[in-house]
């Protein structure tokens, strides 16, 4: 699956797009990310699934866009 990374998270993971195995839900994805990029564990971020914000454990359907969003700071 394809994961988009934005803002400070893109800097931490060193890329704006990550290609990884499929993860069934956002909690398992978080676990993987914390393991691969320990700095993320100390950061606040939200996971968007199909362009919608999720909280807690949310199902990730196949072939949808997943994105890692640090706190917004527009304006």
């Amino acid at each position: 699956m394809k994961i988009l990374a934005f803002g400070k998270i893109a800097e931490i993971v060193g890329n704006e797009v990550l290609i990884v195995d499929n993860f069934p839900n956002t909690e398992i994805l978080r676990g993987y990310l914390y393991h691969q990029y320990p700095a993320l564990e100390h950061m606040k971020f939200t996971i968007a699934v199909d362009k919608k914000l999720t909280s807690g454990e949310s199902h990730i359907p196949m072939d949808v866009e997943v994105a890692l969003l640090p706190p917004f700071s527009g304006g």
Binding site: F6, G7, K8, L69, P70, P71, S73, G74
Partner: peptide, 21 residues
């Protein structure tokens, strides 16, 4: 509050900080 937009504060060629709303 709700739009996924991020501001990176540019200080000079080497330094920057992520904006916090």
């Amino acid at each position: 509050k709700e739009l996924p937009i991020w501001g990176k504060e540019i200080i000079d060629n080497e330094n920057s900080a992520w904006k916090v709303n």
